[in-house]
Design a protein around this nucleic acid. Structure first.
Length: 455
RNA sequence: GGAGAGGUAGCGAAGCGGCCGUAACGCGCUCGACUCGAAAUCGAGUUAGGGGUUAACAGCUCCUACGUGGGUUCGAAUCCCACUCUCUCCGCCA
């Protein structure tokens, strides 16, 4: 079964076939945060890490890196001598001489180099492991804050519905209408799984198709149908690994992971490529299942469709020129908001503070939809500019006209997850008699169905 | 699953133990010449990472990298082993 070994090494050499981190070929180049920056301006990183409430020690890094450099200097001097002496051997042999004495010395030198090389590789690997765990630096415009309490609301849109009855939870509504079956889903798989039937299954397909149609039409995104499981290099490229392995589902005998979001395959679509400047910006979207272990969220959102081990989501990914990436972020945010407007759902947009942002993001806007049963806004989309963070890890560059290659900026945003969208529709459009009205834009996708009636 | 071919810079491709990794040659790209301008042509330039030195991402200097990892050797793109990906043919299969 496990005969076909997992492919996870990639050309850039950050990884070796069995998933262990080894010396990078291009330390400080592709693969991680800017090494030079850390070395020369450790205080910048220190400040950023503090803002993110990270416990990584820059001090520790400086020690590791110092050791690495000391070893390198030593071994490189020896190599330099070896190279010169080897050339001498060649010259003597060409002249018909006997190079025995030199060869004797070189043999010892070679052994010493082998020893030091191993030590240097080890030191390099330690430095790299540290760097791979450093989150992206927050953009200057991001509010500094500890947690979600300090996120900043930007604007609200839409009308919060007023009910002359107690609004019910979407899980109950969907179950009562025969579309959702959490009992059987639990029997089939376990908790945090859902099963939809009839109108609900069709609604999931309808939402997916509606979102994709909007993106490929209005938004100019290229639709992609990517792999739903990827190798370790891809997961490292977008930042899920090595730090967040426990959040992922992996296969037992194969070095593959189920994607937690289509951001992973879509962003890695151009891994190890050099794009032309004219290729930017580039936009992709995909509807895929997403798999998340939800480790650490035990007890949260245990009812309904909000937090699942498997859910379907349409994702947007953009590759942008560094000078243009924050414009692209605004654009992508618009695309997400537009879907909610078309679905007639009330929402608000917030900017995440430094302490609440994801690992790879330099700036993130969350879109939160109104959920009547909880009487609050809940996240339905998250749009992030990852600047060059993922591009470094996945080695995605572009070539400015006539210039040297530069890291692209990558962005990703949900647009939208079908489960949470369904939840919002059920709750916001529920009616006193137990029926649920559907947004008008979905009618063509629902075979003309406008209201879901109790059986 | 069987057999074979291959992975070298932005792309194509040569090299198959030291004179070939600032990697032949071609394309592309940059600059210049020619031109009123352009095309064509001609000329020059054009890999990346790291160490040292440094105010410097400037220069100078050294090291490393020919799919990945390991081995042989004073010395490996070149020889050996394992792995991986791509392509062709055969077999099997939705």
């Amino acid at each position: 079964m496990a005969k076909l070994r997992p492919p996870c090494g990639r050309k850039r050499g950050v990884l070796q076939p069995c998933g262990e981190y080894v010396a990078a070929k291009r330390l400080g180049g592709s693969g991680m945060i800017d090494l030079k920056l850390v070395q020369k301006q450790p205080e910048v990183l220190e400040k950023a890490l503090k803002a993110r409430c990270s416990d990584l020690s820059v001090e520790e890094f400086l020690q590791l890196d110092g050791r690495r450099r000391a070893l390198l200097t030593e071994v490189e001097n020896l190599k330099s001598r070896r190279n010169a002496a080897s050339a001498e051997v060649a010259a003597q042999k060409r002249a018909g001489g006997d190079a025995a004495a030199l060869l004797e010395e070189l043999g010892q030198l070679s052994d010493r180099i082998k020893e030091l090389d191993a030590q240097a590789a080890q030191a390099r690997s330690e430095v790299e492991t540290w760097l791979l765990r450093v989150p992206n630096l927050p953009h200057a415009s991001v509010p500094v804050g500890r947690d979600e309490q300090e996120n900043v609301e930007i604007f609200r849109k839409g009308h919060i519905p007023v009910f002359d009855f107690a609004p019910r939870e979407h899980g109950d509504i969907g179950t009562a209408l025969g579309g959702l079956d959490f009992v059987r889903a639990a029997r089939l798989a376990g908790s945090r799984f859902a099963l939809s039937l009839g109108w609900a299954a069709r609604l999931e397909r309808a939402l997916s198709n509606f979102f994709l149609d909007q993106h490929t039409g209005h938004g100019g995104y290229v639709e992609v149908s990517p792999p739903y499981m990827v190798n370790r290099a891809s997961m490292t490229g977008t930042g899920q690994l090595p730090k967040f392995e426990e959040d992922l589902f992996g296969l037992r005998d194969w070095e593959y992971y189920l994607i937690p979001t289509a951001e992973v395959p879509l962003t890695n679509l151009h891994a190890d490529e050099v794009l032309a400047e004219d290729d930017l910006p580039r936009a992709y979207c995909a509807s895929t299942p997403c798999f998340r272990s939800e480790a650490g969220s035990a007890g949260r959102d245990t009812r309904g469709l909000i937090r699942m081990h498997q859910f379907t989501k349409v994702e947007m990914v953009r590759f942008a020129h560094p000078d243009d990436s924050f414009n692209q972020l605004d654009l992508m945010l618009d695309h997400a908001c537009r879907l909610l407007e078309l679905l007639e759902l009330p929402f608000r947009v917030i900017t995440l503070c430094t302490g609440d942002m994801g690992f790879s993001a330099a700036k993130t806007h969350d879109v939160e939809v109104w959920m009547p049963a909880q009487n609050t806004y809940r996240e339905i989309s998250s749009c992030s500019n990852c600047t060059d963070f993922q591009a470094r890890r996945a080695n995605i560059r572009f070539r400015p006209k006539g210039g040297k290659t530069v890291w692209v900026h990558t962005l990703n945003g949900s647009g939208l997850p079908t489960g949470r969208a369904t939840a919002a529709i059920l709750e916001n459009f529920q009616q006193k008699d137990g029926s649920v009205r559907l947004p008008k834009v979905l009618a063509p996708y629902m075979g003309g169905l406008e209201v879901i009636e109790p059986a």
